[in-house]
């Protein structure tokens, strides 16, 4: 069964009196354990698609099935739960909370999942160890390099064992070296069986993926499998 399946996904944004159509009937399917890159120029609708896949936004029309659940019709609280349990976000600008230390940042999704503070600490330490940051637990994000911050963000995304890891330009703010390290982590997660979706406009990043979905003007134009 497909992990993600959308059919005729449409998203309109009201802009004053007229509305702008960001997605014009997107049909796509992503299987469990796939590593997919969604590529497109800015304004192509790839961010909108990512927000809908990540349950941060709802489509205006069409259907979206995530891990067997029809989510396009769910209410805000159900969406929150899905974001918490099934999706791990990684952002271009890391989006760590600056006043919390590394450990607390990673514990945050577990806090909203209702875990006890002891369980949160155990799980967060475990996942931080897996991204090689067990010696930085008490550091504030401002005390870390960009690559380290993005690894904290990946740890935070992974801590709840989500069905999908959703990354929006995860290497956009990094130098080539640390960008490569981050992509290596995504590859490893993919090899361990995680479903990984990276939204990017960088072909070098997209080459890592098993499949590239190209989107222009709100339509999927091409799906190709890199050699």
């Amino acid at each position: 069964m497909a992990m993600i399946k959308t059919s005729n996904l449409i998203k309109d944004y009201p802009m004053g009196k007229v509305s702008v159509r960001a997605l014009c009937g997107v049909d796509m399917q992503i299987e469990e354990g796939e590593f997919v890159a969604i590529m497109g120029p800015s304004g192509s609708g790839k961010s909108t698609l990512m927000h809908i896949i990540g349950c941060l936004d709802s489509p205006s029309d069409g259907e979206y099935c995530l891990d067997g659940h029809e989510v396009s019709k769910l209410d805000k609280n159900d969406l929150a739960q899905i974001r918490n349990k099934k999706i791990g976000f990684v952002f271009q600008s890391f989006n760590l909370l600056p006043h919390l230390n590394v450990l607390k940042n990673v514990e945050l999704p577990l806090l909203y999942a209702g875990l006890s503070s002891r369980m949160r600490k155990i799980k967060a330490e475990e996942v931080l160890d897996s991204v090689g940051l067990s010696d930085r637990l008490r550091h504030k994000p401002s005390e870390l390099s960009g690559g380290q911050r993005q690894r904290v963000a990946i740890a935070r995304a992974m801590v709840n064992d989500p069905a999908i890891l959703l990354a929006d330009e995860p290497t956009g703010n990094l130098d080539t070296q640390s960008g490569g390290d981050i992509l290596e982590i995504f590859s490893q997660l993919h090899q361990k069986g995680n479903t990984v979706i990276i939204v990017t406009h960088d072909p070098a990043v997209a080459q890592r993926a098993g499949r590239i979905i190209r989107i222009i003007d709100g339509r999927i134009t091409d799906v190709d499998l890199p050699a």
Partner: peptide, 15 residues
Amino acid sequence: REIGVRIAIGARRID
């Protein structure tokens, strides 16, 4: 932005 992050990682409105 912080609120946006909290919502993205699963905070509900009530939280």
